[in-house]
Simulated scan of single mutants.
Amino acid sequence: MAERRKALVTGASRGIGRATARAFSELGDQVAVHYSSRRDDAEKTLALLQGDGHTLIGGDLGDPEAARTLVADAVAQLGAVDVLVNNAAVAPTASNQHRVGEAEWDEWTGAWQRMFAVNLHGAVNVTWAVARRLVERGAPGAIVNVGSRGAFRGEADHPAYAASKAALHAFGQSAAITLAPHGISVTSVAPGFIATERQAAKLDGAEGDGVREQSPFGRVGTPEEVAAAIVHLASPEAQWSSGAILDLNGASYLR
């Protein structure tokens, strides 16, 4: 029987993170379910995982020290971290819109600071901590970053979100070059619109048909479809994909 891998999935309370944690558990892997503030939702994720040995890890990735500490906590509880999924992010919502030329100064600066603190710096800091331990162990591993279609097409209402995800993609490619000699792959996925809990109201409302029509499939993606891609990219068989950015948008945006 293959040895169980230890996977840390950030932002695993709901949506893509929850689906990804479940997918790893279905492979027999042990999972550290990270959450920032939604502990109740994270506990629901934990209860959905197959097998045993899973754990909850809390921490605000906007705090650099918390990012490093949560990796130490994951290692302490799982014994190691072999796979990292950088999924946690400050997502675009109606409350954090910041169109250039329209947003007030505090809205503008606040959105850029918070989105980059979590979406980029948080992922970068967790990656540093996981990669450092993998290199010290002399162990292979996999890191998958969850970026966004918006990194390529732009986001008029949320430019900081698009920029933070573009930077995450670029960081992933730099890390892929550096970590390849250690047997560590680094890849990214760039999802389009995904039917998560957070998007339910929009999909059910007046904008729903327009969102679905963005794709020639006439629908939006599911968290499980993104999770399936992440699990593949994290597999040893996908090591040669290191440095790649995989579009997951149902042909809604081609580049």
Results as ranks from 00 to 15, higher is better:
131 A>K: 05
150 G>D: 09
149 R>T: 04
139 A>R: 08
146 V>R: 09
164 S>K: 07
181 P>M: 03
131 A>D: 11
167 A>Y: 11
146 V>P: 09
154 G>H: 01
155 E>N: 14
135 V>Q: 13
172 G>A: 09
132 R>E: 15
170 A>H: 12
134 L>C: 09
134 L>I: 02
181 P>R: 02
156 A>H: 07
133 R>S: 09
179 L>E: 11
134 L>W: 02
153 R>I: 06
151 A>M: 03
136 E>A: 15
161 Y>L: 07
165 K>C: 14
179 L>M: 12
176 A>R: 07
178 T>P: 00
172 G>K: 06
164 S>I: 08
174 S>T: 11
145 N>A: 06
134 L>M: 14
162 A>F: 06
147 G>K: 01
144 V>K: 10
156 A>Y: 11
158 H>F: 10
136 E>H: 02
177 I>G: 00
151 A>R: 07
161 Y>P: 07
144 V>A: 10
169 H>D: 10
140 P>Q: 09
154 G>Y: 03
168 L>S: 13
160 A>N: 05
160 A>V: 06
171 F>K: 03
166 A>M: 01
164 S>Y: 12
152 F>L: 12
146 V>F: 12
138 G>K: 02
154 G>E: 03
174 S>C: 12
140 P>E: 13
178 T>F: 07
158 H>I: 00
181 P>W: 04
164 S>G: 13
175 A>G: 04
153 R>Y: 00
161 Y>K: 04
171 F>Q: 09
135 V>D: 00
170 A>G: 10
148 S>C: 11
165 K>G: 15
147 G>H: 07
171 F>Y: 15
132 R>T: 15
175 A>S: 13
140 P>K: 07
170 A>K: 08
165 K>Y: 14
130 V>H: 08
178 T>Q: 11
139 A>H: 06
147 G>W: 01
180 A>M: 06
182 H>K: 13
141 G>M: 03
158 H>A: 14
177 I>P: 00
157 D>R: 12
168 L>C: 13
159 P>C: 01
158 H>G: 10
179 L>T: 05
152 F>P: 00
138 G>L: 02
136 E>F: 00
182 H>M: 04
152 F>K: 13
162 A>R: 05
160 A>L: 07
163 A>G: 03
162 A>L: 06
169 H>S: 05
165 K>D: 15
161 Y>I: 01
130 V>T: 08
181 P>Y: 07
